[in-house]
Simulated scan of single mutants.
Amino acid sequence: MSNETQQQQVTAIGKPARTRLVIAGAAVAVVAAGAVGIASVNAQRPDPAAQAPIAADVSDADLQQSTHLTLAAATRAAQSALDAAVKANQRVTVAVVDRNGNTIVVLRGDGAGPQSYESAQEKAFTAVSWNAPTSQLTERLKSAPQLADIPGTLFLGGGAPVQAKGGAPIAGIGVAGAPSGDQDEEFARAGVAALG
């Protein structure tokens, strides 16, 4: 066999061998990069034990506690208000909010109008915010009409505050959907009465 033929065979064999080496080298590089990536991600995630919250010894004078209705109590009040409305053949929605105005429960009675859902929540929020029935608050609008501009409020009859012993507001009950605010408020008061 001539030298030229041998060189052609070596060259023919060498090319695939080089290609395999290049591919193998690339695969090793990809695996190594993945391992480095995993290691760097783990390095960025500190030990969970090292993330323990920092405890502060806060004095009682710097703390404030508030009283909230339980879900069971709020549901009982809402159901009592809805039952009073059904007994009067009215289709309403009842909402109960906590001291901060957050909705605890809403019961939409069969056939209640679509506007009643939001209105009930706003009446409940208004009652707890001012710790007064919304029917009384409508009188305040005569001397301070800008109160009606406060977001989330509705100065129509139908909202009643729930008070703890001592008169502090802890919740509000709003009813909407009856033909008059007086009726809505009567049903809201039935909800308050159910709480004792």
Score class of each variant (00 low, 15 high):
106 V>I: 15
137 L>K: 07
151 P>E: 13
181 G>A: 04
131 N>M: 08
83 D>K: 12
25 G>E: 01
158 G>V: 05
193 A>I: 09
38 I>Q: 05
114 P>E: 11
39 A>Y: 05
68 H>D: 07
67 T>F: 08
49 A>D: 06
194 A>H: 08
135 S>D: 06
106 V>S: 03
25 G>S: 12
55 A>G: 09
191 G>H: 07
128 V>A: 03
30 V>M: 05
115 Q>S: 15
90 Q>S: 11
19 T>E: 12
144 A>G: 02
45 R>F: 05
8 Q>W: 05
162 V>L: 07
162 V>Q: 03
190 A>Q: 13
172 G>I: 07
3 N>G: 15
29 A>K: 01
145 P>W: 04
111 G>D: 09
150 I>L: 14
166 G>R: 14
43 A>V: 00
169 P>I: 06
175 V>F: 01
138 T>M: 10
167 G>N: 11
161 P>S: 09
60 D>R: 13
119 S>I: 02
139 E>P: 00
136 Q>D: 14
124 A>Q: 06
167 G>K: 10
109 G>D: 01
158 G>T: 04
63 L>P: 07
75 T>F: 06
173 I>G: 02
71 L>T: 08
172 G>D: 07
72 A>W: 02
44 Q>N: 06
55 A>N: 03
22 V>T: 10
14 G>P: 02
55 A>P: 01
89 N>C: 06
158 G>N: 04
102 N>P: 01
